[in-house]
């Protein structure tokens, strides 16, 4: 038996969250005596795909077709279903992401598989198949049992340790059949900032709120982010007012981040904002109001004016790099 992992890639490399999914599958495979096979769609260098081996995959199946580069959900689901059959898998593991969710959802029907999303730990298998998942946007966990033979697990980011010591995987081409109806939705163009660090994947995030007063002051956020090697984020009112693009909005109704370090500047810490950052390992809060609720969720804090603190902090970070 095999465990199949659906991996996503961007800018010529496997995404970190997908490597986490492979690491998770590897730990599960050891427990169940199975083999890990990954499947990747679209154009990407074979050498880059072999890196799935570092996280424990024995083999990567590649479906190299330009048409699969963009996230056409039906086509991806169809390909992964064929790969699942081909390798004789009974479990599909993937990283939770907007594309992953959409593909996995269709696969539950194609594979007649029970699915649990936002998985944070290996299943408990003595007497049933019980999976721990994050619910209520990080405010609680649930233990859910999967009752079907085929299973799909969508792993929450930053919830499993990344394995990085495996040997390169072998990469094989996979032939699949696709029909026109898989491409019913047509991508006409994309509009993507290419030089930015991806916010959902970032290891460090520096976010600004309404306390930054206006878009003209964002250079202070960007300077600190640059010094730290961080992605930039913001609170909802900031993106609502058009100070920052929508894809930077963090929180309950925006991006859920899970970095090692989240730095919040001039953000009050409303519960809806916290819902998007509660999976961060460490939180630093900079706010001039000592009563700001964010301090209750923080590990480190500075009570002070962002316009004074940020330039000094940026210099101090540069000094150690």
């Amino acid at each position: 038996m095999s465990i199949l992992v659906y991996i996503e890639h961007a800018d010529g490399a496997i995404k970190k969250t997908s490597l986490e999914a492979v690491s998770y599958a590897t730990a599960l495979a050891e427990k169940e005596g199975k083999e890990v096979v990954a499947v990747a769609l679209g154009t990407i260098d074979q050498g880059a795909l072999a890196k799935a081996g570092s996280a424990g995959a024995a083999k990567v199946l590649q479906v190299e077709d330009d048409k699969l580069n963009a996230g056409i959900i039906q086509a991806h689901a169809n390909v992964v279903a064929q790969a699942f059959e081909k390798v004789g898998a009974d479990t599909l593991v993937l990283a939770k992401s907007s594309l992953g969710d959409a593909v996995a959802a269709r696969l539950t029907i194609k594979l007649k598989a029970g699915l649990v999303s936002n998985v944070v730990a290996l299943p408990e298998t003595d007497g049933g198949y019980k999976v721990k998942r994050s619910i209520y946007t990080g405010k609680a966990f649930a233990y859910s049992e999967i009752t079907t033979a085929n299973k799909i697990l969508a792993v929450k980011k930053n919830a499993v340790a990344l394995k990085a010591d495996g040997a390169d995987a072998s990469v094989e081409k996979l032939e699949v059949t696709l029909s026109d109806s898989d491409f019913a939705a047509k991508i006409t163009s994309t509009d993507k900032a290419t030089d930015e660090i991806s916010l959902p994947e970032a290891d460090i995030v520096v976010s600004g709120g309404r306390g930054m007063k206006g878009p003209e002051n964002w250079n202070l956020i960007e300077d600190l982010a640059k010094a730290m090697g961080a992605a930039t984020g913001c609170s909802k009112p900031v993106s609502d007012s058009g100070w920052r693009p929508h894809h930077e909005h963090v929180g309950q109704t925006g991006v859920k981040v899970a970095p090692s370090l989240y730095v919040a500047v001039g953000i009050s810490g409303a519960i809806q904002h916290l819902a998007g950052v509660n999976a961060s390992k460490y939180i630093v809060v900079i706010n001039k109001d000592p009563e700001a609720p964010f301090f209750k969720a923080a590990d480190y804090g500075i009570v002070g004016d962002a316009f004074e603190v940020l330039p000094k902090l940026t210099e101090a970070v540069k000094a150690i790099k």
Binding site: T108, A113, G114, L115, V116, K130, K132, I135, G138, K139, A140, F141, A142, Y143, S144, E145, I146, T147, T148, N278, V284, V285, F295, K296, A297, A298, D299, Y300, G301, I302, V303, G304, D305, E308, V309, K312, L313, A316, V317, A319, I320
Partner: peptide, 28 residues
């Protein structure tokens, strides 16, 4: 295809460590 059996709350967060605004080097 699934059945939820039980729930759990995450452990409470410890207290914040405050650093003086004139001593940002300590935070770093």
């Amino acid at each position: 295809a699934t059945k939820t059996i039980s729930y759990e709350l995450p452990p409470a967060k410890g207290a914040v460590k405050l650093i003086d605004k004139d001593n940002v080097e300590e935070l770093v």
